[in-house]
Design a protein around this nucleic acid. Structure first.
Length: 474
RNA sequence: CGGGAAGUAGCGCAGCUUGGUUAGCGCGCAGCGUUCGGGACGCUGAGGUCGCGGGUUCAAAUCCCGCCUUCCCGACCA
């Protein structure tokens, strides 16, 4: 094969991280921009990854007892306006429909930015007795929040998500459910499937969801040291129950307002996946999430290599792995190798005449680029081992990044400085309200509050007694 | 929404300052041939309302006005 100059596949991360991100999205065929500002087209490969996320999350959500339902895209404008904090938080980013059927509507309808108000108006109708609680619902839907500064997957005007909405008999019950979602659904998925270490903590008052009493979050660190809020779970108290009149009769026959939660993760997780693991060669997918875990790459169809490649692909698929066979020998080997690397497929099995003659195949790991000859009869165990090792290695690398770019500081000034390259930790009592304002003015925010040993804070604990993690965020 | 940059073939760009034949180049794409273990090479070829709308002019990719979109930096958010 003629030697040619190896052009950079992507803008290197170190040169221009945002540009690198754009390049990956385009070259790995994840998404395109839509024609309307802030909208996106999710391409088949990107959507396949999202579908894997949905499958894993949906199973965990259902394991907590929630069931799926679907509520309308259009919400009467008056609904949104009922809860004061909620209106104030969302009105700047609402898309409002004023015309329908060729006529001006008597009451404009809002395209849902989130569904608390419409779902709660039905909860009010459905909930009668303490015997029916808790009521645990989830919906997979698209929502619209008009964005000033859109960025594919991270901040789009329309995005896909899951939003859970629940009603409980007590504050305690609502709280423990909100926390269960945070840890057993979100954190578990992010850590175990996405291989992204996250800090699970509480939001400060000013970072809270519009209408919530308490917001809990999972924050991840991207490879450029910036924070990404990957999922949130909110305790809504009785705020919405009071305005939507969600009441039930308790055991004593007394009328009570319900206690509520809401929680969501979105296609922003795609951005987290890209930026937490991607390198200069493109995406690096953790095997548990990858739509294709193993690609069997036929080098050249000679001496029975083609048959051998199909046999290997079948063999691996029979193990229950997600396998793809690439027998496109009319496309050069190098090009195909680069393409699969861009797409982040965790393990590649290369088979050509040379391997065949030696009774082996070549196993290549995407996460570290290692190549090793593997005897045919050891292939199954070696592939399984490589997948396990790749999953662990990606998590370990991300964890090391988080650890090495998080520093303990003692003042707001030091925190602002440290946040330029990662996270800073300091007591919230040192930050205070003025400190938080000062940080915000420098483009830095308190990402979350943590308890002792980086654990979840005591829900009743005061902010001043907690550790603040501050950083720049997407 | 404020400040900056940019929209010319699928992608990346030149041409615009100083208006004037048929709008070029690289990559990609199609056909044929030679290749084939890390983005192969040659030949032939297809592909363009120059972002959209208006204006100036005998003549606009080029000059003027408006709008849309994208990227970067700030205020809001999953």
């Amino acid at each position: 094969m003629a030697k040619t100059q190896k052009a950079a596949v992507l803008t290197p991360q170190g040169e221009d991280f945002p540009r690198w991100y754009q390049d990956v999205v385009a070259r790995a065929e994840l998404a395109d921009n839509g024609p309307v500002r802030g909208t996106m087209v999710i391409r088949p490969y990107g959507y396949a990854i999202w579908e894997r996320m949905v499958a894993e999350l949906d199973a965990r959500i259902k394991a907590t007892g929630a069931r799926n339902a679907y509520f309308p895209l259009f919400i009467p404008q008056s609904y949104i306006e009922r809860e004061a904090d909620h209106v104030e938080g969302f009105s700047p980013e609402l898309a409002v429909v004023t015309h329908g059927g060729g006529k001006e509507l008597e009451e404009p309808v809002v395209v849902r930015p989130t569904s608390e108000t419409i779902i709660d108006s039905y909860f009010a109708k459905w909930v009668q007795s303490y015997r029916e609680l808790p009521l645990l619902l989830n919906q997979w839907a698209n929502v619209v929040r008009w964005e000033m500064r859109p960025r594919v997957f991270l901040r789009t005007t329309e995005f896909l998500w899951q939003e859970g909405h629940t009603v409980h008999v007590s504050e305690q019950d609502a709280r423990s459910y909100a926390l269960r979602i945070l840890t057993d659904v979100y954190r578990d998925f992010m850590v175990e499937v996405m291989a992204v270490p996250v800090l699970a903590g509480r939001k400060t008052a000013r970072e809270r969801f519009a209408g919530a009493n308490t917001s809990w979050t999972c924050e991840g660190m991207m490879r450029d040291g910036k924070a990404l809020q990957m999922g949130t779970s909110h305790e809504l108290g009785q705020n919405f129950a009071r305005v939507f009149d969600i009441t039930y009769l308790d055991e004593a026959g007394e009328t009570q307002f319900g206690w509520q939660t809401s929680w969501g993760v979105s296609t922003r997780l795609m951005g987290a996946l890209i930026m937490a693991h991607g390198d200069d060669g493109g995406l690096r997918l953790p095997p548990r999430l990858a739509p294709t875990q193993v690609v069997v790459l036929l080098v050249r169809d000679e001496d029975g290599a083609g048959e051998a490649a199909s046999a290997v692909a079948r063999e691996l698929a029979d193990l229950g792995l997600r396998v793809e066979l690439d027998a496109r020998t009319d496309v050069s080997f190098g090009r195909r190798a680069v393409d699969w690397e861009l797409k982040g497929v965790p393990v590649r099995v290369e088979i050509g005449p040379r391997d065949l003659a030696e009774g082996k195949v070549t196993l290549v790991r995407r996460d570290d680029g290692s190549k090793s000859p593997v005897p045919r009869d050891e292939l199954k165990t070696q592939v399984a081992a490589a997948l396990g090792a790749a999953q662990a290695a990606l998590f370990a690398q991300a964890q090391e990044l988080l650890a090495s770019r998080t520093v303990e500081v003692g003042s707001v000034d030091e925190a602002r400085e440290a946040a330029q390259s990662g996270f800073a930790r300091l007591p919230m009592s040192v930050v205070g309200d003025e400190g938080e304002t000062a940080l915000n003015q420098a483009g830095v925010t308190v990402r979350c509050l943590l308890g002792p040993e980086d654990g979840l804070p005591d829900p009743d604990g005061r902010d001043e007694n907690l550790a603040a993690v501050v950083g720049r965020a997407y």
